[in-house]
Simulated assay, not measured.
Amino acid sequence: MTHVLHYTAFSDDPAGGNRAGVVLDAALDDPQMLAIAAEVGYSESAFVTPGPDGAPRSFTVRFFSPKAEVDFCGHALVATSVALAERAGAGDFLFHSAVGPVPVTVTERDGTLRATLTSVEPRVREVADADLDEALAALRWSRAELDEALPPRIAFGGNEHLVLAAATRERLADLDHDFGRLLALMERLRLTTVQLVWRESATVFHARDPFPVGGVVEDAATGAAAAAFGGYLRALDLIPSDARFTVHQGHDMGSPSLLEVELRAGDPRVRVSGAATRIEH
């Protein structure tokens, strides 16, 4: 019988964060992993096997939502890294994923293990007007409700996410999207989530991430989207080349999450940090 560990990521409180299943010895085929992810029911579960180089802290990791395999998942990787650190000690890990190698460093702060993943190189592209109009229609938003200072883009940080910025916190809080309509658009554009954000200040953002392609209405914390958003801010010169900012997510779902994002001058990659804790199941 496969042993599934249950963690919540981007929170040190078991009641917060985004939950992930973690299988540390996943000698399983694809249908088995998909079936386990569907049974667990979280937005994603991670399946870990030894890395191709045989190094002790090198692993291959795959991610499955209840509906399909996902190329990359930040919160499940944070959960996996903490699970491994609880067994092997804090330090550096290397994960071989479908999008490339992703280094993770786990540290301990005040008795809590925290993981910092370093994304693959992000990229940002324009979104067609017709696709933007369809996304807004599915969200039941209007162009007038967008923040003109944060223009719509499609950003990649392991997966692609449509970034839309609300002009007010009230607009972000009132999320009532057409699940099927948004799903059809996201499947056509090969999006993983829609990264809805509101800028509280230059270094504090709030986010919500509809995730219908994973069979989930909304994600409570999305590490890949936070990495993509960091790349977005830098590509549009909306933040200094050396910068740290925070993303608050999940609050409107009753599952508050905190994602800490770091950009470093001269390094195109984005670092995303957060705590994780095991939950009883």
Rank of each mutant, 00 (worst) to 15 (best):
T2S: 13
T2K: 03
H3F: 02
D12P: 00
D12C: 10
G16N: 04
N18L: 03
R19V: 01
A20E: 02
A20T: 01
G21K: 02
D25R: 06
D29C: 10
Q32F: 05
M33E: 08
L34K: 13
A35W: 13
A37E: 08
A38W: 13
S43D: 12
S45E: 08
S45T: 10
A46M: 11
F47S: 14
T49G: 09
T49H: 05
P50G: 07
P50A: 02
P50E: 04
G51M: 09
P52I: 04
P52A: 10
P56Q: 06
T60S: 13
V61S: 08
V61Q: 06
P66I: 03
E69A: 11
D71S: 13
D71E: 09
C73M: 09
C73N: 11
C73K: 06
G74I: 13
H75Q: 03
L77I: 11
L77K: 01
T80D: 01
S81A: 15
V82W: 11
G91T: 14
F93Q: 06
S97R: 07
A98V: 10
G100T: 11
P101M: 00
P103L: 05
T105Q: 12
T105L: 10
D110Y: 00
G111M: 09
L113N: 07
A115C: 11
T116E: 11
L117S: 09
T118Y: 04
E121Y: 03
R123M: 00
R125H: 09
D129N: 10
D131P: 15
D131G: 07
D133T: 07
D133E: 14
D133P: 11
L139T: 12
R140A: 13
W141E: 06
S142G: 13
S142D: 14
E145Q: 14
L146C: 08
A149E: 14
P151N: 12
N159Y: 00
V163S: 06
L164M: 11
A166L: 00
A166W: 04
R169I: 07
R171F: 04
R171W: 03
R171S: 07
L172S: 02
L175Y: 08
D176M: 04
D176W: 07
H177S: 07
D178N: 13
D178F: 02
R181I: 01
A184F: 00
L185T: 08
R188H: 15
R190N: 14
L196N: 02
W198D: 00
R199D: 04
A202H: 08
A202I: 03
V204G: 02
A207G: 00
F211N: 07
V213F: 08
G214K: 02
E218P: 09
T222Y: 05
G223Q: 05
F229M: 00
G230W: 01
Y232I: 14
L236G: 04
L238H: 08
P240I: 05
D242H: 05
V247C: 11
Q249G: 03
G250I: 01
L259P: 14
E262N: 01
E262G: 04
L263V: 12
R264V: 15
A265G: 13
G266D: 08
D267L: 11
P268V: 05
S273F: 00
G274N: 07
